[in-house]
């Protein structure tokens, strides 16, 4: 973007929005929006507190475990669906249903099944992330150039070799795209799980802040969460660009 002939650095529009926030906050229009400067100072004071580090580590744990299961189960299932007609026809309707289902409605059921704890939150996170990972891995395998598969076979590749040296790499651009979207959905999953179950992690923290009208605290934690989710997505986007040199020429 350029303004009066000067090149503005990327994201400089954020400064404008920050100013708007500050002015609205200072005007005292609503208790719900404290000035940004207050939020930022709160942010730095909150970050060191045991309540925050505990919430962060619990969330990170649930998120990490949820994403781990989504990836470790989702990628092989997707690849198998892409390779096998039977498996595909068995599973595809379910994957599509769950992809578009309002999963939030399932969380209470999960709580009944798995209790009001970490286990339910991890499962919620996995459920949010896994479907798109399966679908993308499947799509990645489906678009594989047939002659690449024949090439591997003609040079004597074992099924395992074909899987790890051809299928996986040929589908990697789609797989990574699926993982990136899955991870963003997992952030939603872990927060929704914590909010509904509300006794652990940021769910507990949000509950505490909003019940006591600590809006600056509330926004501070929210900003931290947004920043974390954004960095994660950018990092996966960076990985995708690293392999884009071959994604376009397959």
């Amino acid at each position: 973007m350029t303004l009066f002939g000067y090149r503005l650095p990327a994201m400089s529009s954020l400064i404008l929005w920050a100013a708007v926030w500050e002015i609205v906050g200072l005007s005292g229009w609503t208790f719900f929006i404290p000035p940004l400067s207050e939020v930022i100072t709160t942010l730095f004071s909150v970050i060191g507190t045991p309540a925050f580090t505990k919430a962060l580590s619990q969330t990170a744990y649930a998120f990490g475990a949820g994403v781990f299961f989504a990836v470790v189960i989702g990628i092989p299932v997707g690849i198998l669906m892409g390779k096998s007609r039977i498996i595909d026809e068995l599973l595809l309707p379910w994957v599509n249903i769950f992809l578009s289902a309002p999963l939030t409605a399932l969380v209470p059921v999960l709580m009944v099944l798995f209790g009001f704890g970490m286990k339910s939150i991890i499962i919620t996170t996995t459920l949010f992330a896994i479907w798109i990972i399966i679908l993308n891995s499947r799509a990645g395998v489906k678009q594989i150039n047939r002659s690449l598969v024949e090439m591997a076979r003609s040079f004597g590749a074992s099924p395992l070799d074909a899987f790890f040296k051809v299928y996986f790499w040929a589908a990697l651009p789609e797989i990574l795209g699926g993982v990136r979207i899955g991870v963003i959905r997992a952030v939603k999953g872990v927060i929704i799980g914590q909010l509904l179950i509300s006794i652990v992690g940021f769910g507990a923290l949000f509950e505490l802040y909003s019940n006591n009208f600590l809006m600056a605290h509330f926004w501070a934690v929210l900003i931290v969460l947004f920043a974390l989710a954004f960095s994660l997505s950018e990092f996966l986007g960076y990985l995708e660009r690293r392999i884009s040199y071959y994604a376009a020429s397959r």
């Binding site: 002659s147 690449l148 024949e150 090439m151 040079f155 040296k165 790499w169 392999i243």
Partner: peptide, 28 residues
Amino acid sequence: DRAFVFQDFALLPWANVLRNVSFGLELR
């Protein structure tokens, strides 16, 4: 005892020339 040369080349797009040429031997 047989090796195939493909109409559309069938090269691994993520591998360089050296790895592509040695891929048959790698599989063996």
